[in-house]
């Protein structure tokens, strides 16, 4: 088992506790986390990434208990083993496409994927030295996926990656994420309320406020 959570609970101050269903994923497997807004699915994502500390329960990635890591160790672990894809690309505006990827590599000491081949795979080679602001929305999203992949993470977390895309692009992005995750043998978790994604990934859990 590459990744699993157990009895995750989280308490927002002054609110009732969230209880999250357990997750178990093998390398190359994908999972959808569905739920309405406010259902706590973003909180779950933060817990999985180790950005929030749970009230109880454990998150284990590749044999490491993520929520037990602290400080610089947690940061390093996150940079090396978890790739983030956000709703918007959120690339660093002063940097070129290539530099954005190199930046991600800088924070990790792990040998990642080849930059050139990754760019080629995502058909970004011609944009390697372009300024980030000159990219189309689709291109920018692909760069952010490349950034998530560059350190060869064991887990890819995607937060509403399709919500601002049309049907065609949404399909492409999910497809790309799935294929790449399989290729680098990472687990893929997509948090979304976008029902279109269900057509591509059948494995899902539903998060509800308890």
């Amino acid at each position: 088992m590459l990744f699993h959570t157990k009895d995750l609970q989280f308490a927002h101050p002054g609110q009732s506790d969230y209880h999250f269903p357990d997750i178990a994923l093998d390398a190359g497997e994908s999972l959808l986390v569905l739920g309405k807004s406010g259902s706590g699915k973003t909180t779950l994502l933060n817990l999985i990434a180790g950005l929030l500390a749970p009230k109880s329960g454990t998150v284990v990635l590749d044999g490491v208990e993520v929520n037990a890591l602290q400080g610089v160790k947690a940061d390093r672990f996150r940079g090396e083993n978890i790739g983030f894809v956000f709703q918007k690309p959120h690339l660093l505006a002063p940097l070129s496409v290539k530099e954005n990827l190199q930046m991600a590599r800088y924070f990790s000491k792990k040998k990642g994927l080849g930059l050139e081949s990754l760019l080629e795979e995502l058909s970004l080679t011609s944009k390697a030295n372009s300024s980030v602001s000159s990219l189309s929305e689709g291109e920018a999203q692909r760069v952010s996926i490349a950034r998530a992949l560059i350190n060869r993470p064991r887990l890819i977390l995607a937060d509403e990656p399709t919500s601002s895309l049309d049907d065609e692009n949404a399909h492409k992005v999910i497809d790309l994420l799935q294929k790449q995750a399989e290729k680098i043998e990472a687990a893929l978790i997509i948090v979304t309320h976008d029902q279109r994604v269900k057509d591509q990934i059948s494995n899902f859990i539903q998060v509800q406020p308890s």
């Binding site: 940061d75 390093r76 996150r78 090396e80 983030f84 959120h90 660093l92 924070f107 990790s108 350190n151």
Partner: peptide
């Protein structure tokens, strides 16, 4: 703010 958060997400420490 967002850039900084992204940097943290891709592995930057607070100190960095």
């Amino acid at each position: 703010r967002y850039d900084l958060a992204v940097l943290r997400a891709i592995g930057a420490s607070r100190f960095q």
